[in-house]
Design a protein around this nucleic acid. Structure first.
Lengths: 220, 220
DNA sequence: GATTTCCAAACGGTATACCGATTTATTTTT
DNA sequence: AAAAATAAATCGGTATACCGTTTGGAAATC
């Protein structure tokens, strides 16, 4: 809902989407070489759109380039997650505060998001909707730059969460329950219409992620 | 100093740098069409590197694409500057706080930057060094993500300042004096080694930019 | 004179081809 | 058997070519 889902006509975009999905779904292992020719052959397009798609994915943090220009599926280091966390803590409480005035109309979208989360069957869906929830608030802040910066981290966040779930085989129902509880509390807090309270509750929510850091330290 | 200045070997990068300079120096007017073929002919390379350079510049906020895929020199709206200001206020005081532990080694770099600013002869140099000063602090924060997000706004900030200067014909000496005074005060504040104080003084510094908002409102 | 129609030029998206550099496999040397 | 040299395959950077679409202006119409 919050993401662009128009069926793009350009081959660059469709190549980008296919590769993005393969990486997020874990079909491509971290460190795997994404050679232009091989990908092009596999996707049935020429190298040019693939090349541009790879640049797109690099911008989104799903692909990294070696010094010699080769593209690999992004490898994650726990320190990266810590950094993402620090930056979210700078952006999201601020966005919550800025969103306060326009929040009445946004609350509906947030509640629809929670309802959809309740209907979710897979961890992937829950994750997607979780990030959508936050993106709704960033959008409501009215600061397009703030939204753009946050969006530039979204794919990477999804990558982290996906790999975490696959590695630790979380119970879908538990992830679902926790997400719904946390988001419901946020919507409640937003009902106060107090900028300070909105900012505080979002800060608290994001700080909850700190619990994951020890788990992440176990990663490769 | 803080920016990459290696003479890039790839034609994409050199095309990107040439175009970047043309836009920042105001040689290309806002809204000008940057047609791939024309640019390629002018720079003596083929369309492919130009095409990729244009995507780079879009990412840096110096170029915007129309729905039909044409590239134009970025047009600025005063609201964009306000947004940049809000985001800097979220990132830079935080970076200052995070940089506190490593600050002793950084202070030297900052002082060298101020000295270079004193030696500057043109407004462009002062502007470049001004942004370098801030980038030094972002780098010292140790949070590469924070640095990356800030860097993604740098070119656009430079674009704004350049157009402002050309439009209002500021006295170089005055800009220089103000910049030096402000940065010297920041370094002084940093000497306290207090995270809270470093954060505060940077917030105050950036808020000083608010004065420009009325001026910017006169822009197209 | 203003508006619409139509056409030629220009443009962007993409496939293909070429080349030097890099990587990988093979062979030679120690 | 290990290491070094060499050969073969692969890869990325880039030029060129082709095609459908967009665009801007001329011609036609009102």
């Amino acid at each position: 809902m919050a993401t662009t889902s128009v069926t793009s006509s350009s081959r660059t975009d469709s190549a980008s989407e296919k590769l993005r999905r393969e990486i997020l779904d874990g079909l491509a292992a971290p460190g795997d070489l994404l050679a232009e020719s091989a990908v092009a052959r596999r996707l049935g397009v020429s190298r040019v759109p693939v090349r541009e798609a790879l640049f797109d994915l690099e911008r989104d943090g799903l692909v990294e380039f070696s010094e010699t220009g080769r593209a690999y599926v992004k490898r994650l280091a726990p320190a990266d997650f810590e950094e993402l966390f620090v930056v979210r803590l700078a952006l999201e409480p601020l966005a919550s505060r800025l969103a306060t005035p326009q929040l009445r109309s946004t609350t509906e979208a947030l509640e629809r998001n929670i309802a959809a989360t309740q209907r979710s069957k897979t961890v992937q869906q829950v994750t997607r909707l979780d990030l959508d929830f936050h993106e709704i608030i960033l959008t409501a802040s009215g600061n397009t730059r703030l939204l753009k910066l946050w969006s530039s981290m979204r794919a990477e966040l999804e990558l982290w969460l996906g790999r975490l779930h696959r590695r630790h085989q979380f119970q879908t129902s538990e992830t679902q329950r926790e997400t719904i509880a946390a988001h419901t509390a946020i919507v409640q807090g937003f009902r106060t219409q107090s900028p300070a309270e909105c900012e505080r509750i979002m800060r608290q929510h994001i700080q909850g992620w700190r619990e994951w850091l020890p788990v992440l330290a176990e990663n490769e």
